[in-house]
Design a protein around this nucleic acid. Sequence first.
DNA 1: ACCTGAACACCGTTCAAGT
DNA 2: ACCTGAACACCGTTCAAGT
Lengths: 206, 206
Amino acid sequence: MAPRKRSNNSGKPGLTRTGIATTALRMIDEGGTSAFSMRRLGAELNVDPSALYWHFRGREDLFEAIAETLVDEVGAAGLPWAAPWSDLLTAYCIQLYEVLIRHPHAVIVFASRPVRSEFGVRAANHAIELMVASGFTAGQAMQAVQALRAYVVGCALDVSATAITGLQPRQRSARPPADNLLAQGVIDAGDHFRPGLDAMIRGLSA
Amino acid sequence: MAPRKRSNNSGKPGLTRTGIATTALRMIDEGGTSAFSMRRLGAELNVDPSALYWHFRGREDLFEAIAETLVDEVGAAGLPWAAPWSDLLTAYCIQLYEVLIRHPHAVIVFASRPVRSEFGVRAANHAIELMVASGFTAGQAMQAVQALRAYVVGCALDVSATAITGLQPRQRSARPPADNLLAQGVIDAGDHFRPGLDAMIRGLSA
DNA sequence: ACCTGAACACCGTTCAAGT
DNA sequence: ACCTGAACACCGTTCAAGT
């Protein structure tokens, strides 16, 4: 029951960067970014708020760690490394998207800073190699990867924004209801993520 | 020199929602979101901070107004309304993108809430009509518009994030430099926005 | 090495009161 | 109608001090 790995749990937890970041992410997941503060995080960890500053240079440093914690969720499941670049990139984009929309309140934390995950870099590199092997220049391949990432983040933010502001988009603003096609989502276009992703991959292939 | 429009400037400005939002946007443009606070905004407007609460329900209400102020910059220049949908949507995306990257610190404010601009809605509606006229279903057309918007926002956030954290992406994190293709932007792929946009439009056309 | 406690300079928001 | 002033309940961060 107590496997002897010489680590930092012995009754009193002993703070760790990753441990702190994980708790912070959970707080944001549950109550949104506005429910988070250094002081509340300290309380959650049964520690004086100022203790956090031994582990992190400050709030921003902690937020970067939170973003990395988030993106590190990608990679547990396998990716089709042997498949053509289009399948590999599609699969990676889907995984990243699913991780992000699992944390609607934290998407903004991830999206507003440049995060790099070891796994994401590996996937990107391999995809670029595959693309180069099939005729793209390295620059084109890299642009493709960046464009796809931007698309995924944009879609995740969409979900995040509508999820946070209360499920139906823009109910509370009193804009004239504009008797036209998309009015208030009357059409119900369904989720656009997959169609858009496929379109982008298709367009990149051409 | 003083054209007699019966409006609200007579020595003492007289606060307006749009006036306040404009000043707030300028503050964010100049100093980033962290340089903004209700109290500082009050000081900037030579007014007690609490005065703002007569015009806005609170901070969040003000931020929504800021986002609308931002997106309302789109529309000054003309759009090719008579052109095929692909040209219309391309032009609109470019305009939105250019407005956004002109306000790197404010992109996050725009991206993290569902904003609707009169102009954007009109452009979207017309594009959807054109797409339907050339064989798309209304649902497909709407998904296309939403996907494009997500892509534009994602790209703008990219620019924003790297611009804010100091021009070169991720210099300060001590990740192993990974002797591979994209290492630290060694390749220099150039801006991916246009290529990615064109790819998406191409993919949607197919 | 790691955490506490007190202190400093801030916040957003409310509400009675002024004009 | 529009703004002020004071008050309340918070913030992030620093720094000496403890263990």
